[in-house]
């Protein structure tokens, strides 16, 4: 039995190692494509080489304002994301409970979903200070995703379990813990995964247009304005890394802690 477990562990470790190597090779492949494209075009102004972007990134990272801008943008976007997720969840619960609320809210969510992010950014500039623009835009992008995913999760709750709860007279808290939460959790995870990507993309776009002080968006804008293409690439790389890292951490935490609450293995 113990031997079987050890060989299972080894197999899973081997698979993990193979997956890392594959990812590394894929990364090398695309870096090579980038390097080739850069050396073919031979114009650092259009496509700087990966090496020069890395040098620019290292140079940027030595300044305090680099880290300050990252922190500012990160806090704003994550704040908008969290607020959007929570508001979407609350509105979904009310819509699940009341048909009237659903009929009122549903078209509004559809409008928010279909409106181009650029329209929102320009409109929002009229309403709020540029410092809060990324919070608002990130919020607006995440809320409908959270709403529709969580509402769908609530609607897919097992009717038979709800009947069981009614017959036994379970308290609302016990119903939430045992029946609703496990049913909705996979949809929350999906909403988080989609919403995180949306919030970073739209939040940075809002910063580029709103240009709040000490933000990634402002740095991107200035890099473009002064044709500092290496820096533009470096900042873009920073956004990709932050967005991917944060999504990875959040999804890992959700998957580890969520598994024990889910109905399905």
């Amino acid at each position: 039995m113990e031997q079987r477990n050890i060989s299972k562990d080894n197999k899973s470790r081997n698979n993990q190692f193979r997956s890392y190597v594959t990812k590394l090779l894929v990364l090398c492949f695309w870096l090579l494509v980038w390097e080739l494209a850069s050396s073919l075009i031979k114009q650092e102004l259009f496509i700087p080489s990966p090496r020069s972007v890395l040098v620019a990134l290292i140079k940027l990272s030595t300044s305090q304002s680099f880290w300050f801008s990252i922190t500012n943008s990160f806090v704003r976007i994550v704040l908008g994301f969290v607020l959007g997720l929570l508001t979407g969840a609350v509105v979904a619960v009310f819509s699940y409970k009341s048909r009237l609320i659903y009929e009122l809210i549903s078209p509004l969510m559809k409008v928010i979903k279909s409106t181009p992010v650029a329209s929102f950014i320009i409109l929002a500039l009229v309403w709020v200070k540029s410092d809060y623009l990324a919070v608002l835009i990130s919020f607006l992008m995440v809320m409908p995703v959270s709403f529709s995913n969580i509402l769908y999760g609530l609607k897919s709750t097992d009717e038979k379990l709800l009947e069981m709860a009614r017959v036994f007279g379970l308290s609302p808290w016990k119903c939430i813990k045992a029946i609703y939460f496990p049913a909705v959790l996979p949809f929350v995870i999906s909403a988080v995964s989609i919403g995180l990507g949306f919030s970073f993309k739209s939040g940075i776009a809002a910063e580029v247009i709103g240009r709040p002080a000490n933000s990634i968006g402002l740095n991107l804008y200035e890099a473009k304005l002064y044709l500092m293409i290496k820096e533009l690439f470096a900042w873009t790389l920073v956004i990709i890394i932050i967005s991917m890292l944060f999504e990875k951490i959040v999804m890992k935490v959700l998957n580890i802690h969520g598994k024990k609450y889910m109905h399905k293995p």
């Binding site: 038979k160 379990l161 009947e163 496990p182 109905h263 399905k264």
Partner: peptide, 10 residues
């Protein structure tokens, strides 16, 4: 009930 209706992951 006919179908047990248990909380599967508990």
């Amino acid at each position: 009930f006919q179908e047990d209706r248990l909380i599967e992951h508990w």
